[in-house]
C-alpha cells in the first residue's frame, strides 16, 4: 500500500531524476573510457575532486556554469594523468586507476583544508535552482515530476543523447569504438590509437567530475568529505549493466535511482521504522552487485578493454 502511494507521487519521480543525474554523467564518462578500451577506476576520486573543484570555484566568485567548466577541466586533468600512464606506457589500469582515485580524493581534501583551514562546517554556495519552464512546468503531475529540475539534470540527459550520437553516428565515434575493439584496425586507417584513447579518457574523466559537481552545485550546496560515497564504483557497475550502451546505461541509472529513492521513502514508513536504517543504505550496493551478476552472461565486453596497445607489436 505504502509503496503504491510512493510510486504515484510526483515528488518521488522528481527525486529519481535528481538521484540519477550525477550517476548519468559519471556513467557516460566511464562508458566513453571503456568503449575506447580503458577501464578508469579513477572515477570515484575524480568525482570527489569534481565535487570540490566546481563548488570551490563558485565559492571563490565564479558563476555556476564556469564552475561546471572548472570541474570538467579538473577531471580532464586527472584523466590526462591516468591516460598517460595507462595508454602510451600501458601500465596496469587497475593499479593506476586506484592510484588516481587516492590522488584525486586526497588532493581535494588537502585543497579543502588549505582553502578553509578554520571552518568546522563547510560554507554554502547558491546552487543551481529548478528551472521554471513555461507551460511544461505547469502541467499537473508531470510538471512537478519531470519539469522541475535544475539545468544540470537536463544537461545529464542531453549528455546521453550526445554520447550516443557521437558514438554511433560520427567517424570519431566509430574510431573510438574500434580503438576498444580492434586497435590495429584503427592504426591501419592511419589514426592514432594513443590519441583516441587519451582523448576518450580525458573527456570521460571530465564528465565524471561534472557528475561529482552535481552533488555540490545542484543536489546540495556544500562540499562534504565522503559525499561521493561509492557512487563512482556504482557507475562502473552501471556501465556493465548497460552492456556498454548509452541508452541501456541510462535506463540502468534511472532504475537504480528509483530503487534508491524508494528506499529513502520506505525508511519513513511505519514498516521501515522497524528495520535498521543501515539495511536501507545497503540497498544501492547490493543492487549494483545483483546487476553485475544478472548481466554477467549477456554483456559484450569491448574486446580490447584493458589491453594496452603498443604499436608495431602484433
Amino acid at each position: 500500500m505504502e509503496i503504491f502511494d510512493i510510486l504515484v507521487s510526483a515528488s518521488f519521480w522528481a527525486a529519481v531524476l535528481r538521484i540519477a543525474s550525477p550517476l548519468i554523467f559519471a556513467t557516460m564518462g566511464e562508458l566513453i573510457c571503456e568503449r575506447a578500451g580503458v577501464l578508469n577506476l579513477g572515477i570515484e576520486g575524480i568525482m570527489v575532486f569534481g565535487a570540490f573543484a566546481g563548488w570551490m570555484a563558485v565559492y571563490a566568485g565564479l558563476g555556476l556554469w564556469p564552475g561546471v567548466l572548472v570541474a570538467f577541466a579538473s577531471g580532464a586533468l586527472f584523466g590526462l594523468a591516468h591516460a598517460t600512464l595507462t595508454v602510451p606506457f600501458g601500465l596496469s589500469q587497475h593499479v593506476v586507476g586506484l592510484g588516481v582515485t587516492l590522488l584525486a580524493t586526497s588532493s581535494a581534501y588537502y585543497a579543502y583544508r588549505l582553502a578553509l583551514p578554520e571552518v568546522t562546517s563547510p560554507p554554502r554556495i547558491e546552487p543551481f535552482q529548478p528551472l521554471d519552464i513555461p507551460v511544461l512546468s505547469d502541467i499537473p503531475f508531470l510538471g512537478e515530476a519531470i519539469f522541475s529540475q535544475t539545468a544540470l539534470t537536463y544537461l545529464a540527459f542531453a549528455t546521453v543523447l550526445i554520447v550516443a550520437l557521437v558514438l554511433y553516428r560520427t567517424p570519431l565515434g566509430l574510431a573510438l569504438r574500434a580503438a576498444g575493439e580492434n586497435p590495429s584496425a584503427v592504426e591501419a586507417q592511419g589514426l592514432s590509437v594513443t590519441a583516441i584513447r587519451m582523448g576518450a579518457v580525458m573527456v570521460g574523466s571530465g564528465l565524471m567530475a561534472v557528475g561529482g559537481a552535481f552533488l555540490t552545485m545542484s543536489a546540495f550546496s556544500s562540499f562534504f568529505f565522503e559525499m561521493v560515497n561509492g557512487r563512482g564504483w556504482i557507475c562502473i557497475a552501471l556501465v556493465v549493466f548497460g552492456a556498454w550502451m548509452p541508452g541501456k546505461a541510462l535506463l540502468g541509472a534511472l532504475l537504480f535511482a528509483a530503487f534508491d529513492a524508494l528506499q529513502i521513502r520506505m525508511q519513513q514508513t511505519p514498516l521501515g521504522a522497524e528495520i535498521p536504517y543501515q539495511v536501507f543504505l545497503m540497498v544501492p550496493y547490493v543492487l549494483s552487485i545483483l546487476a553485475l551478476v544478472l548481466m554477467s552472461r549477456r554483456a559484450e565486453v569491448p574486446a580490447a578493454l584493458m589491453v594496452p596497445y603498443n604499436r608495431g607489436e602484433r
Binding site: 594523468a81 600512464l85 596496469s92 593499479v95 590522488l103 586526497s106 581534501y109 588537502y110 583544508r113
Partner: peptide
C-alpha cells in the same frame, strides 16, 4: 594539512609503477 601524507603515498605509487 595531514592529507599531505595521502597525496604523497598516492604519488609514490604512480611514480613507482612507472
Amino acid at each position: 594539512p595531514t592529507y599531505i601524507a595521502d597525496i604523497s603515498v598516492a604519488t609514490a605509487l604512480l611514480f613507482m609503477v612507472l
